[in-house]
Computed example of a mutant assay.
Amino acid sequence: MTIKLSRSDSGKFRQLLQIDQHELVADARFDPESDSGPNPHDLYDAALAACKAITLLMYAEQARIPLEDVHITIDRDSSEERSGKYHLHVGLVLIGQLDPTQKDRLEKVAAKCPVHKLMTTVETTITTTCEAIQG
């Protein structure tokens, strides 16, 4: 899978992201004029919410747990990001006729979604290649 990014014709910092057949927008969100989409931190945090929801729904279906829907809120505290601390608070709302054991199981499953693991336990290596083109 390759993600391709190009600068948008509209907006000073607006970027177009192409992921297979899907197109997303990212922007800097410094001011109302440059707020045409989520910023990169928003996309990072949103990946966690989406992964948790999908993981929970898939698990519940497979385990025959009567989970009807999942609502998730992510609250970010990035005030200490420059010193190496980035805190995300995840609020899970599980909708369905769940008994306490099922609720507890689903809460544990949510903590094991792949993006949660990437954010908390995996060492990520980034290799960048750079090419300059005369424009």
Rank of each mutant, 00 (worst) to 15 (best):
Q134Y: 08
I19Y: 00
H41G: 11
T127N: 12
V93W: 03
D99Q: 09
A46E: 04
I54F: 09
E61T: 14
G91P: 00
C113H: 15
M119S: 07
Q18N: 02
L56N: 09
D104G: 06
L48V: 11
K117L: 13
L16N: 03
H116C: 01
E61M: 07
T73V: 09
P114D: 07
T2I: 10
K112C: 15
L98F: 07
C51Y: 04
Q134V: 13
Y86Q: 07
L92F: 03
E33I: 02
V109P: 08
M1S: 12
Q97S: 14
A46V: 09
C113F: 15
V93F: 04
A28I: 03
G37Y: 01
T55M: 06
A111G: 14
L48A: 13
T127Q: 06
S78E: 12
A53T: 07
V90C: 07
M1E: 05
L17G: 06
K12I: 04
M119V: 06
M58Y: 11
P38K: 01
D99G: 12
S8H: 04
V70Y: 02
T101V: 08
N39K: 03
S34G: 01
R7C: 02
H41M: 14
T125H: 15
E80N: 14
G11H: 02
E81R: 11
T101C: 08
R14A: 06
L118T: 13
D99F: 08
K12D: 01
L43E: 00
L118S: 15
M119Q: 15
E131N: 09
D35K: 01
V122S: 13
R76L: 13
R76E: 06
I126T: 13
G11E: 00
A60K: 09
L57A: 10
A46I: 12
S36Y: 09
F13H: 03
P114Q: 12
L5E: 01
G11V: 02
